[in-house]
Write a protein that binds this DNA or RNA. Structure first.
Lengths: 144, 144
DNA sequence: ATTACATGTAATCGATATTGTTACAGGTAA
DNA sequence: TTACCTGTAACAATATCGATTACATGTAAT
């Protein structure tokens, strides 16, 4: 099991829009860098647009960031591309037997524990911005 | 996307072994409480056994805990049932374009961020023991 | 030794999610 | 009108999950 690479690709898209901000960042351009199909990129662009992270218009080539780099966290991207639903990082088996003391309580007992674990993971994502990602790549480029 | 319910079922199994420690906890008994097939339970029992969490023997009915309740964390169960591999909670797209500054760096930049998020989630699991789960259920039973 | 019953394990199936691909509708500007 | 872009639907290939069936193997009681 793994969380969909839509998340990583979403970050890639936003980062590249920033790096190419003087130029035109079309779905084809993005697809070439990500190494996938333009239609895949357009679908993701739709999600990022819906989440208010980018501006993109039918018939007009290129996407632009809709917010400041420092105002976009990885959590924003994570939510935008819809990879994990609220309280659903972990799945819990359905319909355990109600006549068993464990069966009738296990879901209620486990759920808050799973939610806490998921929340801790998401908190890390909230504390990283796209600015951090862009700066890290810029640093790596200057060194190499 | 969701982490397999094997994790939740694994917790269920261990918890029920404890609740039924005076009796014989067979795969059929467990399957009835979990509401699944005995073969599914046996496969999970094999994983829990391999991880040293339970003792179970071919031909002999019933499983027993191999460690103290307070010595088994949810993380132990999580690793035992093999739901998420190390550094693979998030997947990263392969083969981004090396001629692009973003494409050639994005993986190295994102990987530690994803690893940190995964680690934070796992840390929560490390801090909860089966004893906590059993006590919580026992409390709920006494109240209701 | 035979019988009854347990665990161990492999094969298979249906359901679902993911990723890539193709195709085309609709918008924009030269 | 033409060229090119985004938006979106349909479909295939692949992978994983959970359930199911079947059977080999091990144990203990008769």
């Amino acid at each position: 099991m793994s969380i969909s690479s839509r998340f990583a690709v979403g970050i890639h898209i936003l980062t590249l829009i920033e790096f190419n901000k003087e130029g035109v960042t079309s779905s084809e351009f993005l697809a070439s860098s990500v190494n996938t199909n333009p239609a895949v990129i357009r679908k993701l662009m739709g999600m990022l647009k819906k989440a208010g992270l980018i501006e993109v218009h039918p018939g007009i080539a290129g996407a632009k960031l809709a917010k400041e780099l420092s105002d976009i966290t990885l959590f924003d991207v994570y939510k935008a591309v819809n990879v994990v639903q609220e309280k659903e990082l972990f799945s819990i088996h359905e319909s355990p037997h109600p006549d068993c003391p464990v069966g009738r309580n296990i879901q209620n007992t486990i759920e808050p524990l799973f939610a806490a674990a998921q929340f801790a993971m998401e908190k890390v994502l909230r504390n990283v911005t796209l600015e951090d990602v862009v700066k890290d790549i810029a640093t790596k480029e200057n060194i190499c």
